[in-house]
Design a protein around this nucleic acid. Structure first.
Lengths: 224, 224
DNA sequence: GTCTATATGGGGATAGAC
DNA sequence: GTCTATCCCCATATAGAC
């Protein structure tokens, strides 16, 4: 049904998400995938390379999905600014949407992605950075059209914070379930997205706050 | 000047933050600390145990500091609700404040803590969970006095998101520096805290949004 | 492309002298 | 408490038969 290469990718994704990259041996991966130990090096040359292949495969689709959503909204709101909530949705919803590849996989890639954002794995750093750069410029423009008053520095900070709460949700929401004693259910994807979106939208819309510029106080009344 | 035990703790903290737990060998730690390889097992029994010792040492002080700040604010605002910004400050500012222990250490523990929140390292999971439980109840009460209208579920979700953006900032702010091409400077601790606090305060104050209950629409007007 | 067998190295931990 | 020397295991990666 699936070929060797895909079996390895799927098994690796699952195990990396569960145990972390370093703690997952190639023996465990090949055993779970039902293939021979040597197959990984044959198909991917190295374990590091396997991780990269795994990410690029997913990130391509992820960004494609983000762009599709942006395209759609730009069509809907011809010319007019797109509501911030839609933009945030386009940014983060695809990150939660990786089920279905193999049954009972949950959102393994989401968890893994959340984890890897804060990993020192250097080879991935570049890939994730490139990924962010891919959509950053376009989203930046879209958000600026929606919130013309926002300072560019704040735009960067806040989008960064938004990504932070998102990847934390992806990687560690089981903690929330424990803390809240079951009151919050991270497995309810729709509700999770609602809560997260509402938080981020409000955070990004925050007024400029105390943020006095270091020097050169703005002489135009640009930001509110 | 420092004894063997502390040297090991400091070196381990630094290296774990830089390279991650698994990727840091005990040989690297003892070399950096200038002590003998066997000293780690003599003083800490195991590498896992060293990590735990490292965290409890820091977390004790961290929560002490949080409680001090809460105490102070409760004194200042006798009876009256404490502004949300103060509460958030009390929660997150101590997480950024771990420099000074050994020169040029930066905020190694902050980075490490940020990383470990999304790690599968089971032994730490319990420690971090216990840490959160330590302050969760008290902050929960304080926030509810400041925002009497907030639903408990939202309170949990949003505090969780707040923690997410915080640990992401701790662990990965170098990414932001690259993306913004230097416009955002995560080494400016005061400014970082201002931006982060403003984002979180606004996010927590968000209106209830679409969040319709799953079933059993509330018959009392409790959570307006 | 797939397998077995193995090379090669590094890891955490410990025994036992000082 | 500190050191040297070493045990023992498990990791990634590869060579070479099928």
């Amino acid at each position: 049904m699936t070929n060797t290469k895909d079996s390895i990718l799927n098994a690796a994704e699952q195990l990396f998400a569960e145990r972390g990259f370093d703690a997952t041996s190639m023996r465990a991966i090949t055993a779970a995938a039902g293939v021979n130990l040597a197959a990984v090096n044959y198909h991917f040359q190295s374990k590091e390379n396997l991780l990269q292949a795994l990410f690029t495969r997913r990130l391509d689709r992820l960004n494609q999905r983000r762009m599709e959503l942006l395209d759609r909204y730009e069509g809907e709101y011809k010319g007019k600014p797109i509501p911030l909530e839609k933009l945030i949705r386009a940014l983060i919803e695809p990150m939660f949407d990786h089920a279905g590849d193999h049954p009972r996989a949950g959102n393994a890639f989401g968890v893994l992605m959340g984890r890897m954002y804060s990993s020192p794995q250097s080879s991935l750093g570049d890939i994730l950075l490139a990924d962010i750069r891919n959509f950053a410029e376009r989203f930046k423009g879209a958000i600026q059209r929606t919130l013309p008053g926002i300072a560019v520095e704040d735009l960067y900070w806040r989008t960064f914070f938004a990504l932070g709460s998102t990847v934390h949700t992806l990687a560690s929401s089981h903690i929330l379930q424990k803390i809240s004693r079951g009151l919050c259910d991270p497995d309810d994807r729709q509700r999770t997205l609602e809560k997260l979106t509402a938080f981020i939208v409000a955070g990004i819309k925050a007024s400029a706050g105390t943020g006095k510029k270091k020097k050169n106080p703005p002489r135009s009344g640009k930001n509110k």
